[in-house]
Simulated assay, not measured.
Amino acid sequence: MAILLAACLISAGCVTENAGNESAATLPGTAWSLQSYIDADGSMTTVLQGTEITLIFSQEENTTGGYTGCNHYGGSYRVNGEAIEITSIHQTLRLCTEPEGVMVQEGAYLAALASAATYAVDAEGRLILSDSTGRPLLTYEPLPAEAPPAQVGTSWHLLTYADDNRTRVSILPGTTITLIFDDEKNFTGSAGCNHYGGSYRVDGETFSTDSIFRTEMYCLEPEGVMEQEDAYLAALKAAAAYKVDAEGRLILFDASGMPVLFYEQVIPPEDLPLVDTRWVLEAFSPGGDTVSSVIAGSQVTLAFSGDGRIAGSGGCNSYGGSYRVNGEAIEITSINRTLKYCLEPEGVTEQENTYFELLESSAEYRIEKERLLLFDASGAMVLTFRAGS
């Protein structure tokens, strides 16, 4: 798959010996991102915001290809000194409507690519393709060879995703979709309604996921949130490659090389203190591998004071109790609560009872940035909180 060649850029390992033509040796095995192109009026124009156009030269076969911002394309190329000829250009036949002008941009780009007659790599490392008169047509920057994004503790917010029609769309207002790499093998996040998790593997620029699970809430608002969640998780499951672009965005590609998920990195705060932080329950695990989100319309909270007391809301009743910590060990005892019985939202009282049972079973805690994790004596994670306002 051509897109995966992006790992090999302008480096000593990509340059073959060619004493008479150093410039020509810079192309095989390199990958480039378009910055500007000549439009139908003959003016140099920057690439539309929210699109990326790539050009990738194969290492050995004199073939080239990439992504136009809507379609994938390929062709052949030949160099002789500073002369270049790109021929037999072909492309897929998708029609994209967003962002406005993307198809016009694609047509202008491919026309300019077919007209390229010379090339040069300037002092800033940019690739410039020009026509036979020497007029610049296309200006590229090298795609950076980034370290894998899947480092412990990195967090990402989804910006856009490819829907069922393979059209790139923004996430719904009022929703947040996250991807968090917890360690070298596992990830978690919020899909907008449910929490999800799974395992992943990185090999070079290839990226694959496995065993994706999610909680079983059904959200009615905002309209379309469940369809968005399904499309997101399907795209994540289909991810086959990744890169981090020059703007620091994480982009996941499917097996065809089409970008399907665009994220921006979230720099999390330092670990929050256990005491004097208001913790809001996100998910709980009543047993086995089952993970449940908090019932929509309910909120469960937990606060630790400096005098060994806890307080909060179980979603229906207020409660209090005592706690003791020793290193990462924690013991929560003497839980007392008010005696209300709540009918709405449905199931909130049963959820509250389960919460108190799990809270009392806590034997270990861990704080990861703005998240508090409680584990039972067997080491199973039973409660997950996030810092609230």
Rank of each mutant, 00 (worst) to 15 (best):
P136F: 02
T160P: 08
V294P: 03
S190T: 14
I212H: 06
L359N: 01
N18E: 11
Y119M: 03
G101P: 09
D276S: 12
V266W: 05
K243I: 06
S170D: 12
A235Y: 02
D210Q: 15
G153H: 09
T68M: 06
G347S: 11
V169F: 09
V291H: 01
C8K: 14
V325N: 07
I180E: 10
Y341W: 07
R249C: 06
A377C: 01
G379V: 09
G66V: 05
T63L: 12
T63W: 07
A25K: 12
A246M: 04
R278W: 05
F181D: 08
W156F: 06
Y161M: 11
E82S: 13
F262I: 10
A283P: 04
T178N: 04
S88F: 03
L110C: 02
S305H: 12
D182P: 05
G204W: 03
I38W: 02
V102Q: 13
C14F: 01
I177R: 10
Y200S: 14
G101A: 08
V280Y: 13
E346Y: 05
I267G: 00
Y67C: 05
E352Q: 06
A6Q: 14
E328S: 12
G347P: 06
G134L: 00
A145Q: 12
L127Q: 11
T139F: 01
V102F: 04
G66R: 14
K185I: 05
R214H: 13
A150W: 02
K185D: 08
G288A: 00
A234C: 04
C193W: 02
V325T: 15
L113S: 08
G388K: 04
A112E: 15
L261A: 08
C70D: 11
G320N: 15
F57T: 02
L138I: 00
Y140W: 02
P173S: 13
L302N: 10
G288Y: 03
D183K: 13
